[in-house]
Design a protein around this nucleic acid. Structure first.
Lengths: 158, 158
DNA sequence: ATCGATGCAAAGGTTTTGCACTGAC
DNA sequence: GTCAGTGCAAAACCTTTGCATCGAT
C-alpha cells in the first residue's frame, strides 16, 4: 500500500483507484460516493452507517482502511475538532491548494465550515505556501484554517 | 468548574489560579511550569512523564483535568495532528488572537511549528476574524493555520 | 471543617491488528 | 489462480468517570 501523495486526485477518481494500482471494489466505490455527496464532515462511523444502507456486508474496518488510502493519495482530508473522533472530507482543490476554513465553538463544541476565502485570503495563503517551501523545503498540499471561539448562542447565554 | 473562557490568561497565571476561583495545588503549578518550559507541543502523557519526575504522586487523570481547566480559561490550546492523541501548548497572544501555524507531513507524520506570521498575515487574519463576527456572530479567540504536505526528507525519498 | 482537587481502577469510545476468507485482476 | 482487499473479533490506545481520600482555604 504505497502512498502516491503528491500526484493529487485524478478527475474521475472512482475508476482511477485502478490508476493508482489499487483494486476497484464495492466498498471503495461506495465510500467515495458517500464522501462526494456528504454535506458536512463525516466521522468514520457516520460513513460506515451510510455505507451499510447501500451495502450491508461492509465492515467498519474497511471504512478506516479506505480512508487511510484516500488520505495517502490526497483525495481526503482528516480533520479533528477535539471531539475525540476524527472527521473526513473530500479535499477540494483551490488554486493548487486544498484549503478549508473551520469554526469551532470552544463552549458547546459545535463546528462548521466557512469556505468563504476571498481572493486576498487565497493570495496570502499562496505566499505562505511559497515561503514555507523556500524556508523549510516543505511542500504544502492542503491547509486548514481553524478558528476557535464562541458561537453566537453561547455568547448570549454568558 | 465553570469555564471563564474569554477573559484570557492573567499575566502571572500560576498564582492566578486563585484569581479564577480555583485552588492552587502542586500538580497545577507543575503542569503549568512544564507547559511554560515546553519546547514543542506535548501530549498528555509527555506532560505526565515530565511531571512525574518532579512529583511522582501525580496521576495522569489530573493532567487531563488540569489541561481541560486551562483550555477552558484560554491559557492552553489543544491541537491534533491526526496521530490519535491530542497535544497541548500555551496560547501565545498576538494582536488579540492566539495564532499558531503548524506544518504536518502527511507522509512521515512529523509536525512542527512555524510561528512566522508577517504583519500582512496578521492583518488578513484580523480581517477574517471581523468578517466571521459580522457574518455569523462568531467571536474568534484563537486560530490555527495547519498546513499539510510533504517535508523535505520525504520529497527526496520519492 | 468544608468541599474542591486528587489518584486509582474501571469504564468508554475510537482506531488498529491478526487471521482466514473472498473476489478483482 | 493469485494475492490484494475484506470482515470479524480481539486488542490497543487515549480519555473520561466513579469513588474514597486528601488537602487548600
Amino acid at each position: 500500500m504505497k502512498g502516491r501523495f503528491g500526484k493529487g486526485p485524478p478527475e474521475n477518481w472512482p475508476s482511477h483507484f485502478k490508476g493508482w494500482g489499487y483494486r476497484v471494489t464495492m466498498p471503495r466505490r461506495i465510500i467515495l460516493q458517500i464522501l462526494n455527496n456528504a454535506e458536512k464532515h463525516l466521522s468514520a462511523e457516520e460513513i460506515y452507517l451510510r455505507a451499510y444502507k447501500i451495502y450491508p456486508a461492509i465492515g467498519l474496518t474497511t471504512v478506516y482502511r479506505t480512508l487511510d488510502l484516500l488520505i495517502k493519495n490526497g483525495v481526503v482530508i482528516k480533520v479533528e475538532f477535539g471531539e475525540g473522533r476524527a472527521r473526513y472530507e473530500l479535499a477540494g482543490r483551490v488554486e493548487g491548494i486544498n484549503c478549508h476554513q473551520h469554526l469551532v465553538c470552544m463552549n458547546c463544541r459545535t463546528f462548521f465550515d466557512s469556505s468563504e476565502l476571498t481572493e486576498e485570503d487565497i493570495n496570502v495563503i499562496k505566499k505562505m505556501k511559497e515561503k514555507l517551501y523556500r524556508k523549510y523545503g516543505f511542500s504544502v498540499k492542503s491547509c486548514i484554517l481553524q478558528f476557535y471561539g464562541e458561537c453566537k448562542d453561547c455568547q448570549k447565554n454568558e
